[in-house]
Amino acid sequence: MLVNEKPAVKDQPMLSVRDLKKVYKTDGGDVEAVRNLTFDLRPGELACLVGPSGSGKTTLLKCISGLMAPTEGEVLLNGTRVVGPPKKMAVVFQEYGRSLFPWMRVRQNVELPLKNHGVPKAERDHLVDEALEAVGLAHVPHSYPWQLSGGMQQRVAIARAVAYQPEVLLMDEPFAAVDAQTRADLEDLIRTVWKKLRVTVLFVTHDIDESVYLGERVIILSSSPTVVQEDIIIDLPEDRDQLNTRALPRFTELRHHVYEQIQLAKKGHRPAAAVVS
């Protein structure tokens, strides 16, 4: 599905965050939102980034997506330094109501990025159809986004990202504003899409259950100024299911562990490496 012009060297990370630091300059002095973050994502990995609220998750995501320049450090996408929004990256924002163009119909919204990059009409149609099909919205291409429910709007945003065929898909708390049942559906949708496309996904969330259920790996952030608190592998079976997976003893263990780490982070505990620096 993903066609790379130059096949990535084996073991070269798809996304690489190196010593990232972000300081906001304000009248009241400098505010250090992110202190020192380093982590890698391998091609095709689905990682969740979880941290207490106010831990600089959004800042980090803006730096990775090239919307904001880091104060220090760098972000590498497939070995190339990110200086602006990279072409092979797509972002799904939390505010679905504000990330879709309200003056365009669902289909046009999904199509726009492709059209903008000069993808020929036939291929475009094919990609859009496929993406809408994948998120279960093939029946409403001519609706306006605001005519749909919140969950469906977020599906449109996901379809837009999928149709764009990114190498890396960033998601900034995409389900924080939808109701619990829709949320479970959307979580499964992400797993399905990921398994089908094997795209590298970085999923930011503040929900511990969600991070464990979704991720193959969970990166836990400390409280602000942010460093990586812990990086754990989620060794749950690949086929996940809202009922059975969540009932597994291993799920409970992992969830417990992440929860403890977040509690520690909230209390200001920092990993040894960060304390030294």
Partner: peptide, 16 residues
């Protein structure tokens, strides 16, 4: 999240 938003928005605009 709110902490970032304020750190990013208000003081800057106050300065300008």
């Amino acid at each position: 999240m709110t902490a970032q938003v304020t750190a990013q928005g208000t003081p800057q605009s106050r300065r300008t």
